[in-house]
């Protein structure tokens, strides 16, 4: 059982506040979806949890299994079992995917790393994600389509076997088939590993494949409403406009609205 606790976290970048007293707890087996308008701090949240040095933590803590990880380096957090599937995975010229993935897995396994089981697992996951086997010899994400890049993120997730997965708009740039493949594979991994998931998305479609146990609406760097899948329906119908008005920001208003719909 693993727990990620974000407590009263305030984060700035170049003096501008992005996250404001943000609080959230995710446990193994839970899938938390965060939705919200553009520029509200959702991607920042995932990067801050992962330790991106671009952002400055002004106050608050991030705890993983009770240990304060706020000051840990990015790779130390990854070794604890955190994984971030990025919205725009970068391309690395000159580094083959094979070389990169081997370095990634051997960094995790250290002396226990064995090449043959690695290749076997890699082949299996590539098939599972319906990826082209040639991608393994190409440079990391270089010339990859949007779908290929996102599948490459999920491939890394499978190889690293994280216990807490952060997925930042993993559905952006995916066609319907790729969306299904990515969605089904994330769900399969979650069921198999019982990992916790924090999912950032704008669209209901992904949530039909990766069914969230908790849904949160984030506006101006904080959660303004939490609920279950019904909250997704509410947003789909009403948008975020009403929530942005101060008088309806409290979660109870949303609940009342929902009750009226029902």
């Amino acid at each position: 059982m693993h727990t990620l606790e974000i407590k009263d976290l305030t984060v700035t970048v170049e003096g501008k506040e992005i996250l404001s007293s943000f609080t959230l707890t995710i446990k193994s087996g839970e899938i938390h979806a965060i939705m919200g308008p553009n520029g509200t701090g959702k991607s920042t949240l995932t990067k801050v949890i992962m330790g991106d040095p671009t952002y400055r933590v002004e106050k608050g803590t991030i705890l993983f299994d009770g240990e304060d990880i706020t000051k840990l380096s990015v790779d130390e957090r990854a070794h604890l079992g955190l994984f971030l599937g990025m919205q725009s995975p970068i391309a690395i010229e000159g580094v083959s995917n094979a070389d990169f993935l081997r370095t990634v897995v051997s960094s995790k396994e250290g002396k226990n790393f064995k090449l043959f089981p690695f290749i076997k697992e890699l082949d299996q996951v590539i098939d599972q994600l319906e990826m082209d086997h040639d991608m393994i010899d190409r440079d990391v994400n270089q010339g990859f389509s949007g779908g290929e890049r996102k599948k490459n993120e999920i491939l890394q997730m499978y190889l690293l076997k994280p216990s807490m997965v952060l997925l930042d708009e993993i559905d952006s740039g995916l066609d319907v088939d790729s969306l299904r493949i990515v969605g089904e594979n994330v769900t399969a991994y979650q069921k198999e590993s019982q990992c916790g998931i924090l999912l950032i998305t704008h669209y209901r479609r992904l949530l039909e494949y990766i069914h969230p146990t908790h849904v949160h609406i984030m506006i101006d760097g904080k959660i303004v409403a939490s609920g279950d899948f019904k909250l997704v329906d509410y947003v789909e119908k009403n948008g975020y406009e009403k929530m942005e008005k101060k008088e309806v920001i409290s979660g109870t208003c949303i609940v009342k609205e929902l009750a009226r719909h029902e």
């Binding site: 990067k47 790779d75 970068i90 690395i92 990169f100 440079d139 690293l160």
Partner: peptide, 30 residues
């Protein structure tokens, strides 16, 4: 910073990430 963050988020140390990026820089096109 972006390249280093990406590699380190996969558990690769800063030193190893730098070595990998350097290798990529010199091997591209070859």
């Amino acid at each position: 910073e972006e390249e280093l963050f990406y590699l380190m988020s996969r558990g690769i140390s800063e030193k190893e990430a730098s070595r990998l990026l350097l290798k990529g820089f010199l091997l591209s096109d070859i």
